[in-house]
Simulated assay, not measured.
Amino acid sequence: MYPTLFPYGIGGFEHPDRYPSLSFQAQASYYLDLDDRSFRYHHSYLFVALNIMQRRAAHLQTHFTIRKSYFDKVARKLVAVSADTLESVANHLEHEGKYSDLSTDQQDALDLLKYVNTIAARIPGSQASKILCRNEVRSYYGYFGLPHLYMTINPNPAHNPIFQVMFGDVTVDLTKQFPDLVPGPERARRLALDPVAASDFFEFCVQMLFEHLLGWDYMHCKSAAAGGILGHLEAFYDFVKISFIITYLM
């Protein structure tokens, strides 16, 4: 699939003879951390790997729930419906067609939505996963009460010397208060070229903020004995994908 990334035809994913076995996600992530940054800079590898992982999650982590009283009725309809019927119904709804224009089979397929709930909370980025996050936050409210602090963290890697080092610029001297950096357009180009380094930079910033400013001990998953600038943390919940964090103080 990628002759430039696997020039010898070895090192592919999920090889049956590999011991110990390695999951697709772990291997795909490992390739992004190699010293050879060909995988990071490839024009499509990131997107294809993510697409495969999302498709697998959609197939393996999606479940249906129905009421017990409707089980027999829904089971018969669910087995009888065909993929072509579902596709035709989807196209009909996409073009805002009327319910009365559907055939009997199409109406039966659409009626299944009244009885079947789709559970897809474990699929990253799905609407159900966002609802799961909201429910977890509400659980925090019930257990800890309202948060004491809300934070939105948005570090800018383009102007940060640490990101330039993560990108691979060995000329940046982090011992200086104001290190010498390449011009702004080149920093922006680096950010666009290496989104993996940008992601690592964001994760690094969040972890350093909690560890050194707020006094959170990641190894023991509790507030450090010395605490932080706001005292001791009791708990926190972070939405890493949208940089939103709620924090509880002791």
Rank of each mutant, 00 (worst) to 15 (best):
I153G: 06
P179W: 11
Q177V: 11
T4N: 05
D36H: 07
N117S: 15
A83T: 13
S223V: 00
M1W: 07
L149D: 02
P7Y: 06
V116H: 05
Y115E: 08
G125N: 09
L249A: 04
A188G: 04
R134E: 10
N156G: 08
R76N: 03
R190Y: 05
V81Y: 08
S103P: 10
A26G: 05
H63D: 04
F167Q: 07
N154H: 09
D111M: 12
Y70M: 11
V172L: 06
T118W: 11
F202K: 09
G11S: 02
D238R: 10
P195H: 00
R56F: 08
K130M: 13
D36Y: 02
V165P: 00
L214R: 03
Y99I: 12
S44A: 13
F6V: 04
D84E: 14
R67E: 08
L60C: 11
A83I: 13
E203D: 14
P157Y: 00
L181V: 07
Y99T: 09
N91R: 15
Y141I: 09
A58W: 07
D111N: 15
W216K: 00
E14D: 09
S38R: 15
E186G: 02
F39H: 06
V172N: 10
D194Q: 08
E87N: 12
H212V: 01
M1A: 08
P16T: 02
Y218M: 00
S126M: 07
L46I: 05
D169F: 04
M1Y: 07
N91W: 12
C221T: 13
R40G: 01
D200Y: 02
D33R: 13
K73C: 00
V48R: 14
Y30V: 07
V48I: 15
V79C: 09
V89P: 01
Y218D: 00
S23W: 06
P161S: 03
K77F: 10
L32V: 12
A235K: 05
L50D: 15
A83L: 14
Q164S: 14
I153C: 14
T85M: 10
L230Y: 06
Y2A: 02
R56S: 03
H43C: 09
